[in-house]
Computed example of a mutant assay.
Amino acid sequence: MTDSRSIPASVAPAFEAFPERERSALLAIRSRILSLAAEDPRIGPLHESLKWGQPSYASKVGTPLRLGLPKSGGVAIFCHCQTRVIADHRALFGTAFRYDGNRALLIDPDSPPDPQALDALIRSALTYRLKKENG
């Protein structure tokens, strides 16, 4: 299911370039990102843009998330590798996911991830600076 909020014209070509199977999975993740941001007033407005040719979602109190295709196949949610977002997620959810070091959560587009675990990663990234400031 895709989000009813329209994709900015500057970002739409990136989604259109993804193969259909992966595009569908990435649009579902986009929908979760937008929904979770809208539900949490601490996050504030999201800035949806392209970074390195990939859809990117940034909040003033978080670290950006990017959506794309990893070299290993499937889809990925990329985080800044110098944050603890991926490491903390791995500590909580262990082998429930595949990871690419400290930079990405890897997802099989044919096997949607546990929504609660996916939401935990998204919230962690979008509020990352709040946790960092509060110790």
Score class of each variant (00 low, 15 high):
A28F: 02
R21G: 07
R98V: 09
L130S: 08
L67N: 05
V85W: 14
D3E: 05
P64M: 15
A96G: 10
L92Q: 12
E39M: 08
P70V: 09
L36P: 01
I33R: 01
I33F: 02
L121Q: 00
S72Y: 08
G44Y: 04
A38W: 03
D88S: 15
I77R: 04
R90I: 08
G94M: 08
A58Y: 11
L130C: 09
I29G: 02
A28I: 11
P55W: 06
F93Q: 14
I107Y: 02
T2D: 07
P41Q: 09
R5S: 13
E48F: 11
S35M: 03
G68A: 03
M1T: 10
A58E: 14
S59P: 05
P70T: 02
G44S: 12
D100N: 15
P19H: 01
Y57S: 08
A117L: 00
D3I: 03
G68V: 05
D108K: 03
G53A: 15
Y99A: 08
D3K: 11
L27S: 00
N134S: 13
I7S: 04
A9W: 06
P55L: 10
A91N: 14
A125Y: 03
L26Q: 09
L65D: 06
A37I: 07
P13V: 05
A117T: 06
C79Y: 11
R32Y: 13
E20F: 03
S56T: 08
P19Y: 07
P19T: 02
P13I: 15
C81N: 12
A120P: 10
K132Q: 06
L130M: 15
A87H: 12
C79W: 06
L118D: 01
L105S: 10
T63K: 10
T2C: 10
A9T: 14
K60T: 00
L69A: 03
E22Q: 06
L130H: 05
L126R: 12
D100C: 12
H80R: 14
G53V: 08
W52N: 01
L36C: 03
A120H: 12
I43A: 09
A120Q: 11
S6Y: 12
T63R: 09
S72D: 04
D3R: 01
Y128V: 09
I86N: 08
S31G: 11
P41C: 10
N134T: 08
L118M: 13
A17E: 02
A14T: 03
A9C: 04
P115A: 10
L67E: 00
S35R: 14
T83R: 04
L27G: 00
I43H: 09
P19K: 11
A17C: 01
F78L: 14
S72W: 02
R5C: 01
N102T: 14
K60F: 00
Y128P: 13
P19D: 10
L46V: 09
T2Y: 13
P113T: 03
Y99L: 15
K132R: 15
L26V: 06
S72E: 15
A120T: 09
M1H: 05
E20N: 00
E22A: 05
C81K: 12
E133W: 10
V75F: 02
R23W: 00
P13M: 13
P70D: 09
I122R: 00
K71H: 05
